[in-house]
Amino acid sequence: MTGNLAHLTLAFGLLGNFVSFMVFLAPIPTFYKVYKKKSTEGFQSAPYVVGLFSAMLWIYYALLKSNVMLLITINSVGCFIETLYICFFLFYAPKKAKMESLKLIALLIVVGFGLIVVLTHFLASGVTRGVIVGWICLVFSLCVFVAPLGVLRQVIKTKSVEYMPILLSVALTLSAVMWFFYGLLLGDFNIAIPNVLGFTFGIIQMILYFVYKNKKPITNEKISGFEEKINEMEEQKVLEIKDHKIVDIVKLDNLMHYDIIPGVGKMNKNKDVLDHMDVQPRSLPNCTIEVST
């Protein structure tokens, strides 16, 4: 029975390594776009810095335990991949984004992780140190799994799954399932408990994806409605300008036919008479003008 349990634990650990490895490779298309455009544009480095911090934290926890070698293997690979992502990001990021990324790295990796290692090393020992680090890993993992709530809120609000890739959601859900059973079979609840939340949110994401994948985004409807209103206002304005010009022409025509403008109305009234009159130009008499000097 114990042998079967060990084999089952190993199987879930290996599957967890494989699925987690695929999750680590998920951002490759993003960085390919960055490479093609030679700019990070609106992408942020925070997910990769947080991923590096998480991997380092779990490695530290695994080193304090004796039976979680598969945690060390996958998180070592994760540290390597996340470091490559961060270096790639810093290479193509503009100056402002680069400085913000370096500040985050210094705050989270250098100060945060450094304080955890130093404080737990000097203020705790043996099993207590492992328990403290385990709780830190548990709380941090819960925070990481809660982070997608913002994406879920955006999906419900906009009725659009544009920013929620289904393949990544499936991979994260499978990863949570594997690591939950791995931690459960080991009797390590610091590994198992956070993945319950990860599995729950993963299922919710997939449900929302299939609910909203064929729906028209609200934002597009608002934009199209706004554009239609603008077009109507522009057409109305053009019609008003045309009507105004027509009114002005009519007014001018009325002025030309009545005595409001002196002389013009009389000319128009006597137009027929003038047409029948034989008006000859009068010549001036010959005059001689003397100029004295």
Rank of each mutant, 00 (worst) to 15 (best):
L70P: 14
S125M: 03
I191K: 10
I74A: 09
V170K: 02
F89E: 09
K103M: 03
F89R: 09
L71H: 04
V77N: 07
I109Q: 06
A176D: 07
E82S: 05
T158N: 13
I74G: 09
F140A: 15
L184M: 12
I86Q: 12
C137I: 06
L172M: 09
V131M: 11
C87M: 07
G187M: 03
C87D: 04
G130D: 11
W179F: 07
I136H: 02
T83K: 02
L71T: 09
F91V: 15
F181W: 13
V118K: 06
F189N: 13
R153T: 15
L115M: 05
P194S: 12
L115I: 09
T173N: 03
L119R: 00
L107K: 01
A93N: 01
I193H: 01
L197M: 12
A93L: 02
G198I: 03
I86T: 13
P148L: 08
S125D: 07
I136W: 03
V118L: 10
I86D: 13
F88I: 14
F91L: 14
V117L: 10
L123K: 10
S160P: 00
L102G: 12
L84T: 06
K96V: 14
F189M: 13
K103V: 11
V144K: 04
V151A: 05
Q154P: 01
W135Y: 10
S101Q: 10
T120H: 04
T73H: 02
F88T: 15
